[in-house]
Write a protein that binds this DNA or RNA. Structure first.
Lengths: 129, 129
DNA sequence: GTGTCTGCAAACCATTTGCATCGGT
DNA sequence: ACCGATGCAAATGGTTTGCAGACAC
């Protein structure tokens, strides 16, 4: 979550951040593009990708480390787990996080300097099973 | 891990499975392609992808649900966690698995029918930090 | 005014797929 | 002989990038 350089406040950036924080789903870049387009019809997909990347680097949003073909983004930067539906791909939150010293255990076992971790459950959501 | 239909025993399949079980790294499809090519120079990348997919469906190998741009495969089907280097992308094993009733907890909280889970730690490996 | 950001389009890269042929059973 | 599996090449789909003009500071 190391805060990077200061970003300029552009309409595009504001709208993307706002839309992302507004929803409880975990939209893909393309979904965010569709959402933002309703307010900024001329925004481009490239801008969406660039901003999501920059905002994630700055710790303003989270880029999810989940499976599936597309990356997903989360306006909630607090550590939490996710459940992903193997059929429809939706991702939901889960109020569960590993014990704080799990990362310490991982460091001891592997020699890695651990930055973060993620727990992902996979299964079928109520609508799909 | 629901075992699918029976697969024919082809040279390509045997070599891929053998190579994957031989290593402790978690190769990408392309890495496996390079490894297999030393023994089967005419094997195609499409065949590699098709077989990895089929063998994963049959529970013979594991397709890892980790971050990064490329999918990775694991010859070890026992449940375990992974550590991924944010710089070089290598993935190592971690002898750590969640409490058995974590999945039950996830089911209660979300209503999903949980099939599996994965824990991924991210950081910098000894060579990269 | 300067340096960042944007829209657009082309480029990229991992993965998938169609098809004619090959080979395991 | 049948039908799944293969090699090849083209197609796909998500993401990235180069560039010229626009905009935040």
């Amino acid at each position: 979550m190391s805060l990077g350089k200061k970003l300029r406040v552009t309409k595009q950036r504001q709208v993307l951040l706002d839309e992302l924080r507004k929803v409880c789903t975990h939209p893909t870049a393309d979904e965010l593009y569709q959402m933002a387009r309703k307010r900024l019809p001329r925004i481009s997909l490239g801008t969406v990708y660039r901003n999501l990347e920059l905002m994630a680097e700055n710790g303003m949003i989270q880029k999810l480390e989940v499976g599936g073909t597309q990356k997903r983004f989360d306006g909630n930067v607090a550590p939490h787990s996710h459940v992903r539906c193997l059929k429809c791909g939706r991702v939901d939150d889960l109020a569960l996080s590993l014990d704080l010293d799990m990362e310490e255990l991982a460091r001891q076992q592997t020699g890695y300097a651990i930055v973060r971790h993620s727990v992902e459950f996979c299964g079928f959501c109520p609508a799909c099973r």
